[in-house]
């Protein structure tokens, strides 16, 4: 994982089939980067659906959530529509996993992102990170604690 206190590397990825989003566009906001293995996990309240319900809490902290996986922009679009997600899913698709590699959270064996979280502050500095065991949805307590800490 990249170190807390270092500058988060910029990137630009598709968020819809015809739109790109780069990290630097979000200066002035806090950013939660949620790397996850794949769309379409089979439970209710999977990690992305869960965070989707917490957007109000994140926005109280001036934080924008971004989900990132190696799924394609078309796959993300279908997934986001199906689960009624109200935050961007970024397609780390071509070259595959490049941003995950940049953030040191790529699983070479499985060819997908690890389950990892970064919280980045208003000027692009990494303030907190967490690598979760791949099978365990980490919830949001670590993110909210980090956002609370940053107020001080």
């Amino acid at each position: 994982m990249l170190k807390t206190g270092t500058q988060a590397p910029d990137f630009s990825l598709n968020t819809t089939p015809d739109q790109k989003l780069s990290l630097s566009q979000l200066k002035g906001k806090r950013v939660i980067l949620a790397f996850y293995p794949a769309d379409w996990s089979p439970v209710c309240g999977d990690q992305m659906a869960l965070y989707n319900e917490m957007l109000k809490i994140f926005s109280k902290h001036n934080a924008q959530l971004l989900g990132i996986s190696v799924d394609s922009k078309w796959c993300h679009m279908a997934f986001a529509q199906d689960r009624k997600l109200h935050f961007p899913l970024l397609a780390d698709y071509e070259p595959k996993g490049a941003v995950a590699k940049l953030y040191d959270v790529y699983d070479n064996e499985e060819g997908q992102c690890k389950r990892a979280l970064y919280v980045i502050d208003e000027v692009g500095v990494i303030r907190w990170s967490y690598l979760s065991p791949v099978g365990i949805n980490p919830g949001a307590d670590g993110i909210i604690d980090a956002l609370n800490e940053m107020k001080k």
Partner: peptide, 10 residues
Amino acid sequence: ALSGVNGTPT
């Protein structure tokens, strides 16, 4: 959310 609920039920 604060307690780390990660789906239902937790």
